[in-house]
Amino acid sequence: MSGVSPVAAYSPAQPSLPTPSPFSFSVASTRWSSRPSIHLSNLLLRSLTLLFSFVSALSLAAPSPNKNEGKLHHGFLAYTEFKYCFIVTILAFLYSAYQLFKGVCDMAYRGILISDMASDYSSFILDQLVGYLLISSSSVVVPVIQQIEQSTSLWKAAIVSVSMSFAAFLVIAASALLSGYKLCKRIIW
């Protein structure tokens, strides 16, 4: 003990290195496998929302031609509820395309498009908003579908549109839970 300085003998223990966050990745590696599975599942959910909202909007915009020549064919533009559903699914499509693009850019270029904190907050808030709009547009269209004659192509297109819009809502709800988890992980841990 005679060769050890008193400062070194009584110094507190070295602080341990912090555990890396599951949202961080190695600087040396930028491959897809280096990202946590939470990012890959987020990309999968965003692509499913993109697909479902696209099919929902497409089914309203391009119904099959009416087989009954004697009846006047009214498109979805004759009903304000269908217009609302169409606009909401287009907004959900654009939002999902943006989130998918941002997710791919974050994985490829290490998050230079938007900061992680701003991205977590905006994703959580906008997921909630888009989810609300999707479920409200689906619920508004259902009573109108019941009033339309069942043999028309608009009725079939509206059924497909509402089904796909509800599926997009379920997927965006899962995305909202995932973005809420990421936000809580950022704030609390």
Rank of each mutant, 00 (worst) to 15 (best):
T49I: 04
S33H: 07
Y98I: 04
K182F: 13
Q150P: 08
N68L: 06
D116S: 14
S161K: 05
Y109A: 08
H74C: 11
Q128Y: 10
S26Y: 11
Q128N: 11
A168F: 05
F52R: 03
Y109G: 01
A168G: 05
I135A: 13
S5F: 01
V171C: 01
T152Y: 01
E81C: 14
S29I: 05
P63F: 00
S138E: 11
D116N: 11
S56Q: 09
W155F: 15
F93S: 07
G75V: 07
K156M: 09
K83P: 03
A13R: 12
S2E: 14
R46T: 04
S123I: 00
E149R: 07
L91K: 03
A57I: 06
L170R: 02
G3T: 11
P18R: 12
G103M: 05
L113A: 11
M117F: 15
I38C: 06
L48Q: 10
V144S: 01
Q147D: 09
S137G: 14
A158Y: 01
S29C: 10
V130K: 09
P65F: 05
W155R: 15
V7D: 15
V55Q: 08
C184H: 10
S41W: 10
P18E: 12
N68M: 05
H39C: 05
L60N: 04
S24V: 03
S119R: 07
A174E: 07
M117T: 13
N42P: 02
Y181C: 10
G111Q: 02
D116R: 13
F82Q: 11
V160M: 03
S41F: 10
L72M: 10
L60W: 02
W32Y: 13
L177W: 11
A108H: 12
Q99A: 02
L126G: 13
V27W: 04
S11Q: 14
A158E: 05
V130R: 05
T89S: 01
K182G: 10
A108R: 14
V171P: 01
V4M: 02
S123F: 02
V142R: 15
Y121H: 12
K83T: 07
V88K: 01
